[in-house]
Nucleic acid binder design. Structure first.
Lengths: 191, 191
DNA sequence: ACCATTTTTTGATTTACATCAAAAGTATTC
DNA sequence: GAATACTTTTGATGTAAATCAAAAAATGGT
């Protein structure tokens, strides 16, 4: 049962048919296997991906070569390195599939052309940015500021109840910025 | 020597004269004394402020009643609780002046009208959001994830070299999420 | 200039979590 | 189905920074 691109687009902000038709032609449907990289450090992020199925992790590699996860996105979510995207600078992070995944992609340059061309589409993009980028990044920020590891784990669980079946303890511990031993103890209720 | 609103606006994204004229009429010039609140928790954030002079802190009050600073903005910066603004939900944070300050303000509802009315202004707002909101929030996020207290302090100092003369140690320690004793020891080079 | 208040510094103690080390459990391959 | 390689759990120890307590320094008001 395939999610329709048209529905994803119209659910963000309604576009008149004429604009929608032009927009749809700029998206590609893509399928990639587990472990595929959507983005590698040093490369600028040139796409926005609308996932329809699968899971990804965002991560940085620090000076000691340790991979540090910063976020997971699963199923119906918008994927991009927004910082690299809008600054047009090389990415510092990797985006890697954790499962075989399906998605629609649009190039940022196409998007720029479309917002110049269609007033309605510029309003659509504002909604996307406000609702997806800002709302999500702000949530992550307040989590990081105010919640301890245990609370952040519980919040992650409430966001993705099946995450323990889909993402390894090590990957989750890396996201929580705690050792996997500590996460194991949290799970066992010993903390 | 007053910063001109027109220059602030045009530096973000160039607007044709006709649009600029309409836009300028929607801004108010404001002056407030030290300790004034631009925003209090429970109230939705309804404005975007363009500071021209002064300093503010953003902070949350946690369950124990402790105030936790999340950000400082000084002089020429854009101020808003972007999360409350775009979600149109009550704010969870306070924005308080730390110095007598001057700024221009626009209501979010006026801004919405203007982006519907002028295609050029919707493109202006996209630039504002991309360059100010996203770039800044992403920077804060990566700082929080990867830098320890000392590194975050040094980064804050490089961003605002005169911050120690303008903002108290306690306020800065709260932002760094460390005790003020620890910040004092960092300053003394004992850490 | 002096007193009151606030801010910053210093020292002693406690604590949460990292790290180290190893065992137990689970998955993958031949 | 034994062998090998991951993943997760458990236990012991170390450490950075919080907390507690109090002194010192700076700031503000009269």
């Amino acid at each position: 049962m395939q999610v329709k691109l048209e529905d994803i687009i119209q659910s963000i902000y309604f576009l008149p048919q004429e604009v929608l038709d032009d927009v749809l032609g700029n998206f590609k449907h893509l399928e990639y296997p587990k472990n595929h990289f959507l983005l590698k450090p040093g490369k600028p992020c040139k796409h926005i991906w609308f996932m329809t199925k699968g899971a990804v992790r965002y991560y940085y590699t620090n000076e000691q070569g340790k991979e540090m996860n910063t976020w997971f996105s699963m199923d119906r979510q918008v994927i991009a390195d927004t910082s690299s995207l809008v600054k047009k600078e090389p990415s510092e992070e990797s985006i890697q599939l954790l499962e075989d995944s399906e998605m629609y992609a649009i190039e940022y340059t196409s998007l720029q052309t479309l917002i110049q061309k269609h007033h309605a589409f510029s309003l659509w993009y504002i909604k996307l940015v406000e609702l997806y980028y800002i709302a999500q990044i702000e949530d992550r920020l307040t989590d990081l500021q105010f919640l301890d590891a245990k609370q952040r784990y519980q919040k992650l669980l409430s966001l993705y109840p099946d995450i323990t079946n889909r993402i390894s303890l090590g990957n989750i511990a890396s996201y929580l910025n705690i050792s996997q031993e500590t996460l194991s103890r949290i799970r066992a209720g010993k903390i």
